[in-house]
Each structure stands twice: as C-alpha cells, then as structure tokens.
Amino acid sequence: MEQLFTVESLITLLMLVLLQAVLGFDNLLYISLESKKAPPEKQSFVRKMGVGLAIILRIILLFVLMSVIQFFQEPFFSLHDNNILEFEFNVHSIIVLAGGVFIIYTAIKEIWHMMLLNEHEEIEKNEKKGSIKKVILWIVIMNLVFSFDSILSAMALTSDMEYVPQLVLMSIAIILGGVLMIVLADKVSNFLQKNRMYEVLGLFILFIVGIMLLSEGGHLAHLHILNNEVTQMSKTTFYFVIVVLVIVDIVQGRYQKKLLAEKQHQEAVVKKEEES
C-alpha cells in the first residue's frame, strides 16, 4: 500500500482524474440533454442521482474488467473470407456499437422534434415529461457505455502498479471524476437552458459522438465493409470537429444578427420616407 503515498502515485491520480474529465465530455453533453426529459424542478436531482449511481456501477465495472478483461475482448462471433463483410464481434465492441446507435437515434429524434414541434405541441411535450426513473436509468446506462474507454485507458496508465494500489487509485479517480461531472452537468444544462440556440449545436455534437462510438465499435470488432477497414475516429479529430462546429455556429449567429440589423435599418428608412 505504500505505493499509494508516493509523488508518482499522486501524479498518476491527477492524470487519471484529467483522463476522466476529458473522456467524459461527450457523456456530460448526453447527461445535460437527457435530463431535460424530466420535469424542470427534478432535472438537477436526476443528473446528480444518475451520475451518483453510475459512479457506484463504474467501480463495480472496474472490478469486473480487472478480473475478466480477457472475456470482454475475446471474439464470440466472427465472419471471414468475405469480400462484402468481415468482423470479429466481442462483448466490448457490441456494447460500444449499441451505445453509438442509441446516441445517434437520440440526437436525430431530438433534432426532428425540434424541427416539427409548434408552440402548442411544445407545451404539451413539457407537460408530458418522461419518467424520472427512466431518465435516470438511461443516464446510468450510457454513463457505463462511455466509461469503458476511460477505465481501459486508466488500466493502461496504472499497469505497472500492484493490484490493490491500482484498484484503489482508479476508484478514487472515478469518484473524483464523478463529482466533477455532477458539478459541470448542472452548469452545462443551465447554459443550454439560458442559450437555447446552442441546443442544436449540442445535438449535432451528440450525433458526432454517436459516429465516434460506431467507428470505435467497428474498430474493436475488426469490421471490414467491401474490403475497407473501419478505423476509429481519434479524440483529436473529434475535438477538432467540435471546435469547427462551434466556430461555424458563432459566425453564423453573428452574421444573422448583422442581416437582421440591416433589414431593420432598411425598414426604418422606408418607413421614414413614406412618412415624409
């Protein structure tokens, strides 16, 4: 246990917490959007409860992965020597692929509702908010899906440590990362609530998160389509795309304000000329 009380262990713990924060960004966005399905007065509670339960289940998942990691990586269904489709599915790849499909479905559904709902339907939708238990359940499930990457990466960072110190250090990192996520989830949700125009941006980022999960799941399954290998989208590419989307959204917003100001100015000029 003396391994826990060294400078090297503290640095590793800091790196693990940062890892939880960086890899948890997409999860944070999902939590903020999913919690909107609960009644407004219960949304903060739903986020805290969902992440709190997920922290406990993440630690349990950590125990499981450290004990039976080989079974998660072992292919159980494969197809080879086929020019159309080749794969080697394992438990890990199936979980990640299912998470990607669900995230894309959620993003498309919310974007579709946003495009079709009129004001009356919006009121009805708010009155028929989803079940709190159901929202918490989905937050927990998706939190576990997103946690696979962070746990496996954390295991790689601490691979040179003995079993007990490694387990304790990773558990502390999961708890600290979860607390940070609870705090940031409220802030992100409040920001989206006050700046509704960024909801569309958030949903499209969520859509890209789904694509990233699909690419990761395909990579884990060694998926080949028409002899073309499915490669994993890197985190660098993911964050680059997000930065581009944010910049485009900011420029588009300012350009629309400029057009609106010019239109109002022209209308004022025309009205003044008519009065004179």
Score class of each variant (00 low, 15 high):
residue 162 E to H: 07
residue 206 L to K: 08
residue 219 H to C: 06
residue 184 L to N: 10
residue 203 L to C: 03
residue 169 L to C: 07
residue 196 R to C: 03
residue 193 Q to N: 12
residue 153 S to D: 10
residue 171 S to G: 12
residue 226 L to I: 11
residue 160 D to P: 04
residue 220 L to Q: 11
residue 218 G to L: 07
residue 234 S to T: 13
residue 177 G to N: 04
residue 150 S to L: 05
residue 161 M to V: 02
residue 149 D to N: 15
residue 185 A to H: 00
residue 181 M to E: 06
residue 205 I to H: 02
residue 237 T to N: 08
residue 150 S to P: 09
residue 201 L to T: 02
residue 223 L to Y: 13
residue 207 F to K: 08
residue 211 I to R: 04
residue 194 K to C: 07
residue 211 I to P: 03
residue 195 N to V: 01
residue 152 L to R: 10
residue 222 H to F: 06
residue 154 A to H: 05
residue 175 I to W: 14
residue 238 F to P: 04
residue 187 K to T: 07
residue 234 S to P: 10
residue 211 I to N: 01
residue 150 S to W: 12
residue 156 A to D: 15
residue 212 M to N: 11
residue 157 L to G: 09
residue 180 L to Q: 15
residue 149 D to V: 15
residue 223 L to E: 12
residue 181 M to A: 01
residue 167 L to F: 10
residue 211 I to K: 01
residue 179 V to G: 15
residue 231 T to Q: 06
residue 141 I to N: 05
residue 185 A to V: 00
residue 179 V to M: 15
residue 151 I to M: 09
residue 191 F to K: 07
residue 156 A to F: 11
residue 165 P to I: 08
residue 183 V to G: 13
residue 222 H to D: 14
residue 186 D to K: 05
residue 183 V to E: 15
residue 181 M to V: 00
residue 227 N to D: 15
residue 161 M to D: 03
residue 224 H to N: 08
residue 165 P to K: 05
residue 215 S to R: 06
residue 196 R to A: 12
residue 145 V to A: 09
residue 216 E to I: 02
residue 195 N to K: 00
residue 155 M to I: 08
residue 207 F to P: 04
residue 208 I to L: 11
residue 191 F to L: 09
residue 208 I to G: 02
residue 212 M to Y: 04
residue 214 L to S: 06
residue 200 V to G: 02
residue 227 N to I: 06
residue 153 S to L: 14
residue 147 S to Y: 05
residue 148 F to Q: 04
residue 148 F to I: 14
residue 161 M to E: 03
residue 150 S to I: 01
